[in-house]
Write a protein that binds this DNA or RNA. Structure first.
Lengths: 330, 330
DNA sequence: TTGTAGGCGTTATCAA
DNA sequence: TTGATAACGCCTACAA
């Protein structure tokens, strides 16, 4: 791989001049510029980003550290992030922590040590003291969950409101014995559970259950099974994310129950397939595209101006009512 | 961020000694080592990977460049890759090309320029001349599709055989007017189409259709619509990947057709949700876990020994028969 | 066992 | 407008 030195030699100029051409500086004579460009083309020279980054202490790569690549919410956000970054000439590398604080620390450190411009993060649960990478000057935008540290940019949806809307929808359609399954990690599950309870309380009702569950399909299936085998079964289940919805669905299928006749089902996050079920599943969709684009905007802002006070963006979810929560007895 | 220099200063030694401690070399006296380690801890020093990589010309990060983050096949593979790499002390960064050759070239170049140890790639379609990053000494393992360049490690499944098995399953269950939708990008769709045609031919049948389609949900839906609105409708549809299956499903739902009564449906790739439909969808599952782990193994091998002749690993898919292809008229 | 010094490929400063 | 040259942070001969 040719270096700037060889380009300089071939063009008969100094490395400084090549560097100037590369940086598109104005103070290079047209003929010299042409010679250098010819040499670059001839050698197939490409700037070494490692060296560049070492020298300039920055890069135009940004990191996206997600807690679960298999959660469609994150892949949708990733798509949006990638698009928005690409438009601005930034590249995105994505890492998967699988909700493992150790991996999160590792990848955050990797990002810092690789000199990325900044990181968009959906935090894993925090075990013990904060990993040292946190806040070490690395521009950081936290999405989906409350930032575990103060002073960071943050993008979330109004989870209480969203969960309350989803629950109110069920109540309005005549369901009364409602159970809720919420992610046990981070602020999100907590808030959604809060909105769920609040909506029930407004109607003077108690929940059949309001459980914290590992945000995984298997866990959702297990807890749903326990609920649905009770003597008096819930007539509706609300799930805190699409993996839990999947899990509940697995159990509902296994038990041979009908939706919504035996039990209604509603969850968070729109996926590609929930509308294809019969009946289709009612969801509270998060605006993944806006989340991704806003994350990039906040990050760019922070990279440009590290000292500005952190923003907190709260978006709204959208209720998409479908057959799985059709009015009771209709 | 403290550098090795400051550590050396605080510990009262030279940078070389610090470097030795970092590299766990044996020729450092215990007391000096202790002093250095104390200084490292005190300053919160972390080695700068950029500098290290510039110097040593390698790193323990590997790149995973996929053609579509939203395709569950790739996220499943990504999980497996991450696990296998993590066990070996490697980190994985993932990039999404969205089937865009330009983005692929960009990310491949990024990987090269960032000095990653190697890359696992599912190639986008190749437009025009090969991007310069290809083969420039960067260890590369190609998955899912045939390598567009000779001399590269390659992991695929036996697509002809798999498609033939899926088609034979339909034939065995009494379907005769079978249409196929196959991804228009890369070798995979081609081979699957070949196996599809072969199976039909063995039974002395012609396909109702055997179309190449952009491997996207919308494209699948469009082509399926055209097929299903024909005067004489196919009695079964085979899809070349899960996004196409989704698309076909969208159309089937929109047209109010029943599965498998009006039309049977089968596709490639197991996803989390296809078993949850009623009827559940028959699929030809690829061993994503084996693919991911094998990719890491091949890559590690090539990193260690760049000169060995390339391997080509051909795995088998597994037919998972479900209700969507139940015997005709049963 | 420890230190000195050169260089990995860039960019930026300072002279010329 | 151009060229020497000194860093960026690290590793590794080589010397002590």
């Amino acid at each position: 791989m040719p270096s700037i030195k060889q380009v300089a030699a071939t063009a008969g100029v100094s490395t400084a001049t090549v560097s100037r051409v590369l940086a598109n500086k104005s103070n290079v004579s047209p003929e010299v510029r042409a010679r250098v460009e010819a040499a670059i083309a001839e050698l197939g020279y490409r700037p070494n980003l490692v060296a560049r980054s070492l020298r300039s202490q920055r890069s135009n790569t940004i990191g996206l550290v997600v807690s679960d690549v298999r959660n469609p919410f994150f892949t949708e956000v990733a798509r949006a992030v990638e698009d928005a970054a690409y438009e601005r000439g930034f590249r995105v590398v994505m890492c998967n922590t699988d909700e493992d604080p150790e991996k999160e620390a590792l990848y955050l450190a990797l990002m810092r040590d690789e000199n990325v411009a900044g990181v968009i993060l959906s935090p894993a649960p925090q075990a013990g003291p904060r990993p040292s990478a946190w806040g070490h000057g690395l521009p950081l935008v936290v999405i989906d969950r409350e930032a575990p540290l103060p002073g960071l940019d943050n993008i979330v949806i109004d989870n209480r409101k969203a969960a309350a809307a989803l629950t109110a929808h069920l109540l309005q359609n005549g369901y009364r014995r409602i159970a809720g399954l919420f992610g046990a990690i981070g602020s999100t599950g907590e808030e959604r559970r809060g909105g769920f309870l609040q909506a029930l309380q407004t109607h003077g009702l108690d929940p059949v259950a309001a459980e914290y569950v590992a945000p995984r399909r298997a866990a959702g299936a297990d807890v749903a099974r326990e609920l649905l085998l009770r003597e008096v079964r819930p007539d509706a289940i609300v799930c805190g994310n699409s993996l839990l919805t999947e899990g509940a669905l697995v159990t509902i299928r296994e038990l041979g129950l009908r939706i919504p006749g035996d039990v209604a089902l509603a969850g968070f996050d729109e996926t590609s397939w929930q509308a294809l079920l019969e009946p289709a599943i009612t969801v509270l969709a998060q605006p993944t595209d806006v989340i991704g684009r806003t994350a990039i905007e906040l990050l760019m802002g922070r990279v440009a101006e590290p000292a500005v006070p952190p923003s907190r963006v709260v978006l709204d979810g959208a209720l998409i009512a479908r057959g799985s929560t059709a009015p009771r007895g209709s």
